[in-house]
Computed example of a mutant assay.
Amino acid sequence: MITIKEVAHHAGVSMSTVSYVLSGKRSISEETKRRVEQSIVALGYHPNAGARALASNRARVVGLVVPLHSDQNLPIIMRFVSSIVARARDHDYDVLLLTKEAGPGEAHRVIARSMADAIVVMDVESADPRVPELRAVDAPVVLLGVPDDHEGLSCLDLDFTTAGRQMASHLADRGHRSIALIGSPPPVYERGTSFAARLLAGFQGETAKRGLLASVHSCAAGYDAVSKCLDDVLHPDRGTTGLVVHNEAVLGPLLLELRRRSLDVPGDLSVITLCPDDVAATLPVPLTSIAVPAEELGAIAVEMVMARLGRELAPEVRLLQPLLTDRGSTAVR
């Protein structure tokens, strides 16, 4: 990679002169400026984000707020992060990853110190305490998630409410009368995480509308926790014939435990899940699923903040419609 030192040597000037040409902070003679620019072209030098920031009075950085919790599925989180980083780089922006618990004031601190030009917020709660602060941030802010009170904020997510309804409806349409939701770990619901609450609301709304017997089971990660959860789900009094699984981390252990109990999918028990397509397709039993479009959501979030840089655009809420793929793991009863 060509460095600023090599450009300076090629042009016969100091490194500070090259920096001044790039930043425009000081007056440089036209002749010197032309030599530096010719050297940049000849060597194929690409200024880094910091140098470009000097010229544009922007940090050319997107702040990504993603507090990490022990109950989160990190591989899924990293799909979002990787997509955001990749799309930001397409715009010659870097990403500042803020992984600590970011309470009120964090977004203001990042923007006030010129650490970032825009903010993307993940791990959004239904009653998120950061909402008043985020409304007041003097920079574009996009939430990957939808709090209950989202007035004045731009939000983006999968339509989890519709996803919950569709998965319950999928089983009901196949004659299942008693179904169960195996949901996220308890802390996810305790925090009031928006996506989990919305999927639960959709599931419960559809099962009530259809007159189904329905139970909800929060399930921690780990084989023992999955086994204990299944003991409750499959209690003979419930007569459960179909499962909706909204917990990517338990899918593998769940299928192994069903096999250990000599339960066939879908012969004995139908299973539908919400997870990335490649995960659902490569499990020991490929599962009918609604896709988590992490890569698409990450890319759209970046495009939304980029569209708002230097522009006054009205806040918007964008919900991607669920896409269900039938892989044969749900049977007609």
Rank of each mutant, 00 (worst) to 15 (best):
E106W: 07
D159I: 03
A88Q: 00
R165S: 14
A163K: 04
T162S: 13
G63Y: 13
M1K: 15
S262F: 04
L274T: 14
G50A: 14
Y45M: 09
D173I: 08
A294Y: 09
L274E: 06
T282P: 07
Y223T: 14
P47L: 10
A139T: 07
E296A: 15
I272C: 15
H246K: 00
I290D: 06
G145R: 06
A127V: 05
R130T: 03
V7I: 03
V110S: 03
R210E: 07
A59H: 11
I290A: 13
R87P: 05
G298N: 13
P286T: 11
I76V: 12
D232S: 15
G164K: 12
R259V: 10
S169L: 12
D237A: 15
L256C: 11
E295C: 10
M304G: 01
V137T: 07
L324W: 01
L287M: 14
R113I: 00
E125M: 12
L98C: 09
A301K: 09
V110C: 04
V245P: 08
T99G: 04
R261M: 07
L269M: 11
E190R: 11
A116N: 11
G105M: 06
K5C: 03
P147K: 08
R113V: 01
G44A: 10
D231C: 08
H91T: 01
I2D: 08
A86E: 07
P104M: 05
G252R: 11
A196W: 11
Y20K: 08
K25D: 05
H46S: 13
L256I: 01
A88T: 04
T3M: 04
T3L: 04
G105S: 04
L324D: 01
L313H: 06
E303R: 14
A281I: 09
P187M: 00
Q204R: 15
A201P: 03
V36W: 01
V188T: 15
C275R: 05
S82V: 04
V81D: 02
T288Y: 13
P266Y: 03
P286S: 11
H10C: 02
G211A: 13
S23W: 09
S270D: 12
H69E: 11
L324I: 08
A225I: 00
P276Y: 12
L256N: 14
E316V: 13
I76G: 07
